[in-house]
């Protein structure tokens, strides 16, 4: 599992995403540039320039036609993946921390920061795929305001039925995807331990949260029941579910500001593999020399990529032993 090192950013990575086909990888960092890479060999396809601040988040439409990014310059930009043109800019009062396309690609949600007297919100933008994509609605079709604790991450459940959000206070909320009404709120993680990532399973029936409280939780999108808990020994920044094999990958590390006060040997800058069902840790992948900020898995489950505070993206294609590994009980089940 020799990694491909993508050294295209000058500053720490914020989010990376494979497209639905898995042939492309998009990465955003604090250096204002979006990079697109061929996932197979790590060749850079191009960049999307235009943002004026650190880019916090990126997502690509299911058909790989449009790319949405959210930035500290208080805007969400929509790009034509093929040409690299910016086709639309939505301005917000505060920074945008997370964008995500709905499963059918017809909407994008944007999580905005709570700052300067503005409460944190989740805005839903309708996307029009006609023509040259520049004809987009100006106003969000839905706006959810988080009055209690601001949302830090959010995503769409199956069929876009719910919007699931993770909050700064460690709770997880379920909103109706159409009306924006809050249906459920669960204190999934320790109080006041921010949720840093929330990624869905391929069928979007369950999702994985990563929190500062050093744990990741697998939860049901339908009723927010906590299905599994994965305990790590370091604050977590990102967590992803692997398709094909029942694993989860967790990433994190000592917070960047604490790193200087500790020795290098215990930074815990490793990607950790846990068995999704048994909750046991089964392996680690070293490489980064800073905390892991973001992890995303190839939609086919054949590779994963991690982006770190060190400014590198590492793409790992899984080897045969990865696919062969099985618990005895799993093997037994398979034989039956």
């Amino acid at each position: 599992m020799r990694p491909i090192l993508l050294a295209g950013h000058e500053r720490s990575l914020n989010q990376i995403k494979f497209n639905r086909d898995g042939d492309l990888l998009f990465s955003v960092a604090k250096d204002k540039i979006v990079c697109a890479w061929w996932s197979a060999n790590g060749e850079r396809l191009g960049t999307y320039a235009g943002h004026l601040g650190a880019i916090w988040t990126v997502d690509v439409s299911p058909n790989t036609v449009l790319l949405a990014t959210g930035s500290a310059d208080n805007s969400v930009r929509l790009w034509n993946v093929k040409t690299g043109e910016c086709v639309k800019v939505w301005e917000f009062p505060t920074a945008v921390k997370r964008v995500e396309f709905s499963p059918d690609g017809s909407k994008v949600l944007a999580v905005t920061e709570k700052r300067m007297g503005f409460l944190g919100t989740i805005a839903v933008l309708d996307i029009n795929y006609d023509g040259d994509f520049t004809n987009q609605a100006e106003e969000p079709s839905l706006r959810i305001t988080c009055t209690d604790s601001k949302a830090t991450v959010a995503g769409w459940s199956y069929m876009g039925k719910y919007i699931i959000a993770g909050h700064e206070d460690g709770s997880v909320s379920q909103y109706d995807g159409k009306t924006g009404e809050q249906l459920e709120n669960v204190q999934a993680h320790e109080f006041d331990h921010q949720i840093n990532d929330l990624q869905f399973s391929p069928d979007r029936t369950h999702f994985l949260t990563a929190s500062k409280d050093k744990s990741a939780k697998l939860m049901s999108a339908r009723n927010l029941a906590i299905l599994k808990t994965y305990v790590a020994d370091t604050p977590l920044n990102s967590a992803a579910i692997t398709p094909k094999k029942d694993y989860v990958i967790l990433g994190g590390g000592q917070a960047a500001m604490d790193v200087t006060t500790t020795s290098a040997r215990q930074g815990k800058f490793e990607a950790r593999f846990y068995h999704k069902v048994f909750e046991d840790e089964i392996g680690r992948v070293k490489g980064h020399f800073g905390p892991l900020n973001t992890i995303h898995v190839h939609p086919a489950g054949t590779a994963y990529a991690s982006g770190g505070e060190d400014g590198y993206v590492r793409v790992h294609h899984f080897d045969k032993p990865y696919f062969d590994f099985m618990y005895e009980v799993e093997r037994e089940q398979l034989r039956r």
């Binding site: 042939d23 197979a40 060999n41 790989t64 059918d104």
Partner: peptide, 25 residues
């Protein structure tokens, strides 16, 4: 098929069906 992109007319078909991905370099 609701979760698959309905507007993805020109998108390539699922790679999973083909099994192998061919990468031209």
């Amino acid at each position: 098929e609701v979760d698959s992109p309905k507007l993805a007319k020109d998108a390539p078909s699922d790679t999973e069906d083909k099994g192998e991905t061919v990468v031209e370099e």
